[in-house]
Write a protein that binds this DNA or RNA. Sequence first.
DNA 1: TTGCATATTTGGACCGGTCCATTTTCTGTC
DNA 2: GACAGAAAATGGACCGGTCCAAATATGCAA
Lengths: 340, 340
Amino acid sequence: MERSMSMRPPTIRDVADRAGVSKSLVSLVLRGSEQVRPEKREAVLRAVRELGYRPNAAARSLSEQRTRTVGVLLNDLRNPWFVDMLEGLNSLLHDNGLHMLLADARLNRRTGQDPAGPFLDLRVDGLVVVGTLPDPAALGAVAERLPVVVAGAREPTLPGVDIVVNDDERGARLVTEHLIGLGHRRIAHIAGYGAVGELRRRSFEATMREHGLADEAVVESSDMTEEGGYRTTVRLLSRADRPTAVFAVNDIAAIGALSAAEESGLRVPRDLSVVGYDNTSIARLRHVWLTTVDNASHEVGRRAARCLLDRFEGAGGAGELHLAKPTLEIRGSTAPPVVG
Amino acid sequence: MERSMSMRPPTIRDVADRAGVSKSLVSLVLRGSEQVRPEKREAVLRAVRELGYRPNAAARSLSEQRTRTVGVLLNDLRNPWFVDMLEGLNSLLHDNGLHMLLADARLNRRTGQDPAGPFLDLRVDGLVVVGTLPDPAALGAVAERLPVVVAGAREPTLPGVDIVVNDDERGARLVTEHLIGLGHRRIAHIAGYGAVGELRRRSFEATMREHGLADEAVVESSDMTEEGGYRTTVRLLSRADRPTAVFAVNDIAAIGALSAAEESGLRVPRDLSVVGYDNTSIARLRHVWLTTVDNASHEVGRRAARCLLDRFEGAGGAGELHLAKPTLEIRGSTAPPVVG
DNA sequence: TTGCATATTTGGACCGGTCCATTTTCTGTC
DNA sequence: GACAGAAAATGGACCGGTCCAAATATGCAA
């Protein structure tokens, strides 16, 4: 078993020689054929074990014309909301004999290259784009060649590209109704950009309107970062008609809102209720304990996998929009307003 | 340019036909040979552009007997301290024409398979193991076949495997001296497990001893999670001789300590100073603003890349230990103790 | 024992690149 | 215009698998 680094890994022919059969038979055994006499199968498996043989993925995919591999392009590893989603994605892919390769769009972007480039070169069988890409332009050409699913973002909308995402309209409504139900009337929304930001904002506004609170709704834009959430909240809190609750477009911005409140001497949730979106691991920290919307990322991942699997089966058709059902995760950052 | 999904990507022969040259010439052009007449080179490049040709990585690596790809095995995507490190790693690898593939050891572990298996099948040229693996046993066999570097962890120690990590002894000393310098005497350490945990604890104890504070040092073990940090701190704070400062083995545990303090009605940093380790993005949140040790992860990444590159050049030798220099990042969670 | 149907096994063509030994095409010189 | 030497271009053998048509082995009935 002693093998040095310089010596090359055993090939299927080495296995065949050792087992005293042809390479074709080894191939049959390894791919689980029933048409092999048990003693030969044993001999082959023993040789495989003794040599520590592992099939060469490059050779196999070259010949099979498929890699059994799906590329996952993450928009930014620093936003860890996608970890649950990857688990959902991986569980289903794995059950179907597929592997997952990860890449960070931001890391490879510095070079001005198409971030999916390496995946294309590897001839992955499908691509999952997670989150909103910095430069979605290149995606169109990719989608012409292989199944592409966008997960956790609403853009870009491309022919033949499925989109799997939580129902932002519903999520924002859950939050708004929760706050209204607690007795809040003057409620602010820290809005974000892009289709997701717009949907959440619209749904917030609509829900406020439905409850006759159109005039109590305050909307301020931000850039979906902690810094942005902080600055926007500082602005909000300095208003004469200070809101008693803030609904931020995502958890990160909500964390910024928390610090702004703290800095203004307001206690959360006594003096100000704060809600986020995404149910990030940060929101779950005891020290933060943020009421937020769980965006069902595990389910999003599973459905994204389902979409790919269906397309592998040959299902064509235009891209569909799949909505997973978000739920409200009530924690410690919301409470009834102090009657003042 | 209209191409459908069913139609297979162009090969080097398609390019050759279109450019009216042989496939060998196309290969020469693509690999940047000087030995090609300018007009032919132009013709080839034009054909490449017009067909949208991308070389097939499988075919190339099969023939070249190398993949120009490095596998990065992350212990857990939920612990995002490694993002900076990946940037450092990637920058150097990229400059040398190498690609990076990511995998999460936890995701693929469920199957009881070797988490590095897919990388082995892909015949990556090298492997970077980030953090402490759940099951390091399998690594030994891998290291016999290709260069392996462990980054951000001290285990396992294997022949021929380099280890790149920040200097935990120095980091813990920086923290302890910082706290002592502020005037703290009774200082607690929330210890962790493994070689890293041990080094930090030992260094804390040694530094306390050097300052004649051996009797003031309190050490409690934890599991390096938020929950663990919380529970340990609750225990610490209920002691008669309550410490005025807590040094947690990592940021996550420190966050747990923060909530415990908060819950006990203690203000940080007025009543209790808290320090973490790793300078995670969480520590940088304004709402947390944790004094912590920056473990120089970018530098660790660069050095890990350097190790691999050296081994690719043929440098052999036993595995070395490379220490990057950590620095203290003083934020808002530490202050002089209130004289009581 | 032979013959035939069925069960196993095998050689060899491919997959799409790289690379080297050879062939073909240029140059410049006489 | 012929010719040597250099420059440019090419064919074909590989890399390590899969897969299919063809070859061989086995089992059973006659």
